[in-house]
């Protein structure tokens, strides 16, 4: 099918397409970070986990021929990184932010080391579902090529929201995140809850990495991540630790990320590089706009080292 000229409509369409396509890694990392932070710990290492997940997912998908096995491997790698973080942080005097940065560098370094042989080969891609069949316009059809993982992420966001509200596990995580003393008085082992939450959060970040290397952009190289793992941390704060808000925030960031390429495609040649910085500017702007020097952050888990 030949592309139909749709003029400036291409910009909002590209932003929508971008929102769906680019948001998935943001969504998974931020849900993982949300889960970890709700338990009272912050894991800055998710950027490293994401890159290692991208590498391991790509490698396993290439070796086995199954992209889904790749996603599984990436999740498993994420669990391992999360467990390491959670285990080290239980020791007295260890700072979770410092460990996170160390693990971020470790994950990136290990991914580059083991990933060298996989830069050339081509791994099978994750399938997507066409939701644009109702339209004759090919641009709309391609914009609504929705990846399975995006849908999984959306369901996961709702699931986490429900879990924090209506399950024992969810309430236990919130108790631990809000007051270690109260948790101890209830006979809960705060360290174990945080260990498991960090591990699960790591798994989500691993999946986000697999999405990057197995779907969009869909190859493994050393520049695969553009800081999604770090921006997701800011995104969680912006989303006020609410998984549903994480979903909308991820869409917003995805859309902002698509702004630069979209403008380029409709012929804006001047300064479009500036629009490539849109997600970063948005991160800064939103954090400033939603913060206040006067009052404490609403909804922040009280045990979090950045809000104490």
């Amino acid at each position: 099918m030949d592309p139909v000229d749709i003029g400036l409509w291409g910009v909002p369409l590209a932003i929508l397409a971008g929102a769906i396509r680019v948001s998935t890694p943001f969504l998974f990392v931020s849900l993982g970070e949300c889960l970890t932070e709700r338990s009272g710990r912050i894991n800055l290492g998710l950027e490293g986990t994401l890159i290692f997940g991208a590498m391991s997912g790509y490698a396993v998908a290439y070796e086995t021929g199954s992209p889904f096995l790749g996603v599984g491997a990436a999740a498993l790698a994420g669990v391992v990184f999360g467990l390491v973080h959670g285990w080290i942080c239980k020791f007295k005097g260890v700072n979770d932010i410092a460990i996170g940065i160390a693990l971020m560098l470790l994950g990136t370094g290990l991914a580059f080391f083991f990933g060298k042989p996989y830069i050339q080969p081509v791994a099978p891609k994750l399938p997507s579902i066409s939701l644009g069949g109702w339209s004759d316009v090919p641009q709309v059809q391609s914009a609504l090529q929705v990846n399975v993982l995006f849908l999984v992420g959306a369901i996961l966001a709702v699931f986490l929201w429900w879990m924090f509200r209506s399950t024992r596990v969810g309430l236990v995580i919130r108790v631990v995140g809000d007051s270690t003393d109260a948790a101890r008085a209830m006979g809960l082992n705060a360290d174990r809850v945080r260990l498991l939450s960090t591990a699960a959060g790591g798994a989500f970040a691993g999946v986000a990495g697999a999405y990057l290397s197995l779907y969009y952009p869909g190859s493994w190289n050393e520049g695969i991540s553009s800081g999604q793992g770090l921006m997701a941390v800011a995104l969680v704060i912006f989303a006020r630790w609410n998984p549903i808000n994480c979903f909308w925030a991820a869409l917003l960031f995805g859309g902002a990320g698509a702004l630069g390429p979209a403008l380029q495609s409709v012929g804006v040649t001047q300064g479009y590089y500036l629009f490539f910085a849109a997600p970063y500017v948005l991160t800064l702007g939103l954090l400033i706009a939603t913060s206040s020097p006067e009052r404490a952050m609403q909804g922040a888990p009280a045990e979090l080292s950045i809000t104490k």
Binding site: L171, V172, R174, V175, D178, S179, A182, G299
Partner: peptide, 12 residues
């Protein structure tokens, strides 16, 4: 637990 509601505090 400060951020939990009274009902959530009691049940958990």
């Amino acid at each position: 637990v400060p951020s939990l509601t009274a009902a959530e505090n009691l049940v958990i």
